[in-house]
Design a protein around this nucleic acid. Structure first.
Lengths: 186, 186
DNA sequence: TTGATTTATAGACAAATGTCCTCTTTGACA
DNA sequence: TGTCAAAGAGGACATTTGTCTATAAATCAA
């Protein structure tokens, strides 16, 4: 799975992907355990093999807001904290028992500083992350609550099946009460 | 101004910046003129020297939503369209008489394919864009309308002075009627 | 200057959404 | 298995926000 992920960038040879794989260490995480805690630095990045993760941040009022979810086949980190080196404003927590492949940020930094291919891949990742966020901005900005839910149903039906509703509501920027209403079709 | 911009990445020599400058062509644009039209491909990127630009997209209902604003000292393009090569979903329009420095996308693509420094700079730009969007997500997701307006007042007071309110309202994802109420302090 | 357009405010009302609370179901686990 | 916590639905009501409309002020072009 991780091989396909790195192949998809279309720049690495089989041998290089062998080497890439060797940088990653397998780790198992139990439900509700935290991979990265708000306020700490992001020193490693994970590739999700199994399970679902949730990223959330805590407002000044203490309320937790769900920023996003991570599914198998994709990278997981507090990307802003990874980029900046500053303490993370997000917490990454497993919603189910999970399995990840972990790589040190220092390894990645070193690779990118010394390899054009890696620099290229990390640029591509940054761009992909940007495009994904733009889509969310469009949604948060112009859609009403029920449209948001329907868009989610269409584009990411797996979200609805696997994730507790109050997290989804928070992700969509609405209250759980209201999401319940929407689901009822009112 | 554009020299400072490229110097800020900390990788280019004075001579290289001379060369970079030579890729850019000056262009004047009148108020309300369009730099990039929704549905067309993004073949050039601009550095804003003077004036304010607005990026907006049109929903299936025909309503225009303001995605962001561009001020002097920063790059302007439909970044998603620039990345993907697909037709832009945004229109870039001058809100005032403006002056920009334009570079061809093909030039930039060629530079990044052949230069580690450029690849590095473009990666950095992508990351900066990501971080800025994340901040907006946080705001759109968890803040109420009046908080959004106050945050805007604090962080980007220049927005409020220079930009018509209905664009600001659209940018914040609220109606102009409501923004007017908020300003009145109700 | 004059007239037209844009910009900002605001009243009245309807619709959307949030808060607080309760109840039922489900699932985890001791 | 029994108990407890988590998850989801929903009633009642308050608040927020949107829509439609009108008006005044500001801006701009002829």
């Amino acid at each position: 799975m991780i091989r396909e992920f790195f192949k998809s960038f279309g720049v690495f040879s089989e041998e290089e992907i062998d080497e890439i794989e060797s940088y990653f260490t397998k780790r198992s995480i139990k439900k509700n355990e935290v991979f990265l805690q708000e306020g700490t630095k992001c020193t490693e990045i994970a590739f999700v093999v199994k399970g679902i993760y949730r990223s959330y941040y805590t407002g000044s009022d203490g309320v937790e807001t769900t920023y996003c979810f991570c599914f198998p086949g994709s990278l997981m980190s507090s990307y802003s904290a990874f980029i900046s080196g500053e303490p993370s404003s997000e917490t990454l927590q497993a919603l189910t028992d999970a399995e990840i492949l972990v790589v040190k940020k220092t390894d990645l930094d070193q690779l990118s500083e010394n390899s054009f291919k890696w620099m290229h891949v990390l640029k591509t990742i940054a761009e992909q992350q940007y495009v994904a966020l733009e889509q969310r901005i469009f949604q948060l900005q112009r859609e009403g609550a029920s449209e948001k839910y329907n868009t989610l149903l269409e584009r990411q039906p797996i979200y609805i099946q696997k994730i507790p509703l109050h997290y989804l509501a928070s992700y969509l920027g609405i209250s759980q009460r209201h999401l319940s209403r929407i689901r009822k079709g009112v």
